[in-house]
Amino acid sequence: MSPVLAVEGLTVSFRGKIPAVSDVDLTVGGGEIVGLIGGSGAGKSTVARAVAGLVRPDHGSIRIAGSELLGARRAEVRRLRRMLHLVFRDPYASLPPTARVADIVAEPLAIHRVGNRGERADRAAEAVEAVGLPTALLRSFSHQLSGGERQRVAFARALVTRPRLILADEPTQMLDASLRRDMVDLIDELANDRRIAILHVTHDLGLAQHSCARLVVMCRGHVVESGPTAELLAAPRHGYTAALIAAAQHRPSKGLS
């Protein structure tokens, strides 16, 4: 069976400059959480944005459940897009500033013309419950919510189309430390209970170790190393990975300077 997401030879450059991402390969299977690791400017967010269709790759292949996304006809692209969802880093910016939670969560259904108004409302309520928020919140406006609640709403919006793949771009970075663990637990739950494939973009190795089965490490647009989390952390082969591990333990690095 083909993986839910298979990226091969992905290269993205902005306005003819040095590629932000070059020749990236990675796969994510159903129910699997893969961590995409790297520092700022490594190109990891660009990979997620390319899969979500926000930036146009120069070349490469992105297959969703075995079907090629790049260069596909419009109807096929729409069908494949419905199977994935991107969750952004900043929950204060990624939700419309003046809309009710019910409408925010139901919007993907409206975009893809799924069901009638009543059915969409039901599915939105279902999704809000699934991320551990009270349904009473459905009538609140986004600006009335805390950062943690907002990020849960973002995940509810991701779930409502019953996607097979969620791309999570540093979803915990803007949250207070005491809320991060809950968010990571929620992501685990989505992968385990709903068999959703999750690509978790993060620079936080501690967090990645906690929930990712496999890691893909990026540095300056290239994948420098990838493998099962435990193996990779115990015996990093690349100096950059070693440096990241040292930094995460707050001890001086012996690797790349």
Binding site: F14, K17, I18, A20, S40, G41, G43, T46
Partner: peptide, 8 residues
């Protein structure tokens, strides 16, 4: 996007 915009 800021991080990805290199100096002209």
């Amino acid at each position: 996007m800021g991080a990805e915009r290199s100096a002209p």
